[in-house]
Write a protein that binds this DNA or RNA. Structure first.
Lengths: 184, 184
DNA sequence: CGATGAGCATGATGAGTATCATGGAGTTAT
DNA sequence: ATAACTCCATGATACTCATCATGCTCATCG
């Protein structure tokens, strides 16, 4: 089954997109076979696309975090835009959408265990914090924008992680709402 | 090699203690064999102690979170005690000690992926939040102690998780310090 | 249009995994 | 003390996994 260059490129994209969803959902130990199945292929051709599973992880993680960054930057720099972003991030819908949600919240802990992927993660997190402190300047003029951004972002990450781990929807929502009230 | 009841009980404890350290360090997919080796046994007798790997996970997680709770309660209810607790939690030493550190920060994401263990996790987290809002009443009298406790705890969890995932010690410390400055 | 080569499916390999089966040794209840 | 029982080590079973090898099929380039 020879395949055109365009289709090959499309499959490559597909592997990346499906894999990051699986990684967020089930963790980095999702098997190569599952990734390929999700992309509509068998396990074999994986190594025509990536040199190893670790290479896929690095590439998928980098891309996903890039997307997260540009999504963040797309939000208008108005008060309203910021509110929407925070509302969305701390929504029950986001907490329920592990697969499609924030990559940092889903995978940061596993990154800590796999130092090989820490470098791209660190870069992207720095960008995110920078964007945050630029566009969400709660303390504009107080020279504390960055510190406040770090605190706000940490609490958002923590809240989503806790809300997801919790069995009780009321408690989960309380975590999200109480956090939302206190940032931005 | 028959073994006395006392030694058996001790081995049981050892399996629980070593396993939770391994789980925090490397995640819940640490193998039964590794756990048993860490406890000084071979893989076989595992099923004399636990009915399944999942049973071990539930028991180890519950115990670890109980310990975390009582540790938290042990801190004196003085201003100084609270400060020490927060300083310790948001220290570089804690961030570096994945194995021995906070179970919630290490395993919450994996709990979200393994609903079987969500119930004990939820119970223990509720206790933790309750203790927090009782003993760390930043807003005593304002009727917002609980909300503030949730926000503070979320940001602590998030900060430790991010600091651990990050490659750059200066950035990691910044995350911890900026968070520390803004709670309690 | 014909040769080349990339990407495909199938299948093999070797390592790791959870769990169960077996038999021995010492502890314990009788 | 003796019998029974419990926990141990070793080994077996039946997966699953990452990675590599093979051969085929078409897209692409000359």
């Amino acid at each position: 089954m020879g395949v055109s260059a365009a289709e090959t490129a499309k499959k490559h994209e597909e592997i990346l997109d499906k894999s990051i969803r699986l990684f967020r959902q089930d963790g980095l130990n999702v098997s190569v076979g599952e990734v390929m199945k999700a992309a509509g292929l068998t396990h074999g051709p994986f190594y025509n696309h990536f040199s190893s599973k670790e290479a896929l992880i690095v590439e998928a993680l980098t891309r996903a975090m890039d997307r997260g960054s540009s999504e963040l930057e797309e939000y208008p720099k108005t008060e309203r835009g910021r509110r929407d972003y925070l509302d969305t991030y701390l929504s029950s819908a986001h907490a329920s959408d592990l697969k499609g949600g924030c990559t940092i919240a889903a995978l940061a802990v596993e990154v800590a265990r796999e130092p090989a992927i820490a470098k791209p993660f660190t870069e992207k997190l720095k960008e995110t914090i920078a964007t945050f402190s630029e566009h969400f300047p709660w303390a504009r003029g107080k020279r504390q924008a960055r510190g406040l951004a770090i605190h706000a972002f940490s609490s958002m990450i923590g809240a989503v992680i806790l809300a997801r781990a919790v069995d009780d929807p009321v408690f989960a929502r309380e975590i999200l709402d109480e956090t939302r009230k206190r940032i931005g």
